[in-house]
Design a protein around this nucleic acid. Structure first.
Lengths: 171, 171
DNA sequence: TAAGTTTGCTTCAAACTTGAACCAAGCGCG
DNA sequence: CGCGCTTGGTTCAAGTTTGAAGCAAACTTA
């Protein structure tokens, strides 16, 4: 089968996407590096931990939520541990396992820096979109993510209690 | 002013976006690393050169188009030069300047690997979206990019002759 | 025309990411 | 049990990215 090239519309969308995602990640990384002294991924790790029950998560679980590789996570957690934002604990039930725990210090850091981060995300993204566009973006991204995640068919969990409370440093 | 947190809709959109963009970049990077032996950014550099008149672009210009920093580009071009895909040429009119030129070898590499790349982009993204969604995605991303680019007000150039011909390794 | 500034690009060290290799610890089963 | 296989995590070397600093050519202006 000969290649189905991108249509002009698709090309425009693709180029726009590449540009936007680079610019957005750069802006967010810069801002967080300034205010929190860490790149966006690291911040996300803390944010994910802060939402987990008991502020703790197994490494693999955390890697899946943040969509990063386990080895990347190992490195990141080691760094965050040095910073005092995270602590590692062994898993009693499975001695291979290791659990990352958000420390109080980490939580404080998160609370201190969340407002600035949200402001940045707002300024760069949401304040520029109509409510319909926000919905469209979610649809599109969810669809793509579903396609790229291992199992294309599993529905997302729609009742995660500790995710229900709305405001928080959850970005 | 107290922080305007993200609304639940915005949070969902943001999470979906983070997930999708990570997964997408990873998938594309993996595929291109396999087939072309280089990450996506490097491929984009080649693709951008291939579309430029005479297949050559000043470093700064190239950096702007690909949305990466100049130092990142310097590193990348050095590597691509070692691979033989790109050649550097001094700029006669401005002796500080340096121009990256896509070699025939680079062009061949691009032509050989473009189909696989497009397939990946299609499978991961466009084949999962309706035509309306493609349009929405473009709108959204263009809006975000406009906001993050230096000048918020300048219209995008809508007649770039060497961009008009549609199919090609332009991703 | 000689400072002083800006622009174009590179360099450097430190931080980060990648993927493959590795090491236990759990698991399945003859 | 005890042998293989899988799973959870880490490690290592090689590659990449970052941001600040550096360098030289071009511009500006007194």
């Amino acid at each position: 089968m000969t290649t189905r090239w991108l249509t002009p519309e698709e090309q425009r969308a693709w180029r726009a996407y590449i540009a936007a995602s680079h610019l957005l990640e750069d802006a967010i990384d810069r801002q967080l590096q300034q205010e929190a002294g860490m790149p966006h991924v690291y911040y996300s790790i803390l944010a994910n931990l802060s939402e987990a029950p008991d502020r703790r998560l197994r490494m693999t679980d955390l890697a899946e939520r943040t969509k990063i590789t386990r080895s990347r996570l190992t490195y990141a957690v080691t760094r965050l541990e040095k910073d005092g934002a995270v602590r590692r604990e062994g898993c009693p039930s499975d001695k291979r396992g290791s659990t990352a725990v958000l420390t109080d210090e980490g939580m404080t850091l998160l609370e201190r820096t969340a407002p600035g981060h949200v402001d940045t995300v707002r300024a760069a993204l949401f304040d520029r979109l109509t409510p319909e566009q926000v919905g469209q973006l979610e649809e599109i991204c969810a669809s793509v993510a579903r396609g790229l995640e291992g199992d294309d068919t599993q529905a997302p969990p729609d009742d995660v209690p500790w995710l229900r409370r709305s405001p928080g440093p959850c970005t």
